[in-house]
Design a protein around this nucleic acid. Structure first.
Length: 337
DNA sequence: CATTGAGCTCGGCTACACGA
DNA sequence: TCGTGTAGCCGAGCTCAATG
């Protein structure tokens, strides 16, 4: 076989890119037409349905009779169309790229998100991170919007990071973080929680957000002949910087900010490459005292943020009591044997 | 060819809203 | 107040494409 020349490979690549883009444009345009149709049907429903006239139910039956092979005329779906038309107009399809996510994504957003701004925020995140319907469902359930977009986060990023990095870091940071994937018991120490997080590193990275790569647990730094260890160290490929995480089981204490400041100085000197952005620190605690945290961060020279994290046991007490105990379930299983 | 995952549609259950 | 309509939530089952 002939060795393909660079020019040949380039030509193949060029065609490949064009075809892929064309496929993508075609599916977006087909999907946009579906959205357009859904808004149209939705508007017809809005105009005609009155309380008690069973318009949606009858329409569903008739459409199914007229188009026996067509799907999507269930009562439930017609109601989604009605809701869709109440939220968006035809012009919004292009403006917000409504055709770039599937109807199932829209169903999730319609059923779980009440305000339009939040809806559009999730839509943009879905496109950005290429979330599947299930990904989107779990992100909406974890109230990502409240935690990431509207949360009043505690940090000194505003003053300690260059403008172009600041916004990206702030939009990456969450408050609180949800570590509900680990099995928490009351007697667990910081290191136990940390070990559990590392054990479930896939879930941890998912919760931290896109671009995070795990560098190590108890990351070793040697300064002035002494050993120091960073709880968890990550590199974020989008932010192009190291992210050091310090995990605390109690409430936030001011000295933790000083310690983090020291770690970040060491990290910037010893590990950071010249082309990397300044390293960022994140102190995670069970309870953030906003006033203390804001004071403590004010005079730190390095960019540091403070967030709370929640574990699965942070359930309201009455809910916790309503759940059966492990022994309870076990005894019932034994009974069945 | 079997398996797996994503997307899609549907129906059951339930709580709430409406109006006679 | 009560019967009926509406909407939300969740799981089942299906298709289709990718993968080994």
């Amino acid at each position: 076989m002939l060795t393909p020349s660079n020019q040949y490979l380039q030509a193949v690549e060029e065609i490949n890119d064009y075809v892929n883009q064309a496929k993508c444009r075609a599916s977006v345009s087909v999907n946009s037409e579906i959205m357009k149709t859904n808004i149209f049907i939705g508007n017809v429903i809005i105009r005609n349905s009155e309380w008690g006239n069973k318009f949606v139910e009858n329409l569903s039956k008739d459409m199914k009779m007229r188009f026996p092979s067509a799907k999507g005329y269930s009562v439930r779906n017609l109601k989604y169309m009605k809701k869709f038309a109440q939220i968006f107009t035809e012009d919004d399809i292009d403006e917000y790229g409504l055709g770039r996510i599937t109807w199932s994504h829209h169903q999730i957003l319609m059923s779980k998100v009440s305000n339009r701004e939040e809806y559009i925020w999730y839509l943009e995140k879905t496109l950005e991170h290429k979330w599947s319907v299930d990904d989107l469902t779990s992100q909406v359930k974890s109230q990502l919007y409240e935690r990431q977009a509207v949360a009043n986060k505690i940090s000194n990023f505003e003053r300690r990071l260059p403008a172009e990095q600041k916004d990206m870091v702030l939009s990456t940071m969450k408050d609180p973080y949800m570590f509900d994937f680990i099995d928490y018991t009351e007697e667990m120490l910081e290191t136990d929680i940390e070990n559990e997080l590392v054990k479930n590193v896939t879930s941890l990275l998912m919760e931290l957000g896109t671009g995070f790569a795990f560098m190590g647990q108890q990351y070793h730094l040697e300064v002035g002949g002494k050993d120091f260890y960073i709880d968890l160290l990550f590199y974020n490929t989008k932010l192009r910087c190291y992210v050091a995480i310090d995990l605390k089981t109690g409430e936030f204490k001011p000295e933790q900010a000083g310690k983090m400041n020291f770690y970040l100085s060491a990290l910037d000197d010893l590990v950071k490459a010249p082309e990397d952005n300044p390293s960022v620190g994140l102190i995670l605690c069970r309870d953030e005292n906003r006033t203390i945290a804001e004071y403590a961060l004010r005079d730190m020279s390095k960019p540091i943020g403070v967030s709370e994290y929640h574990l699965c046991t942070d359930l309201p007490l009455d809910l916790k009591n309503a759940l059966p105990a492990v022994e309870d379930i076990r005894s019932r299983i034994d009974m069945k044997k």
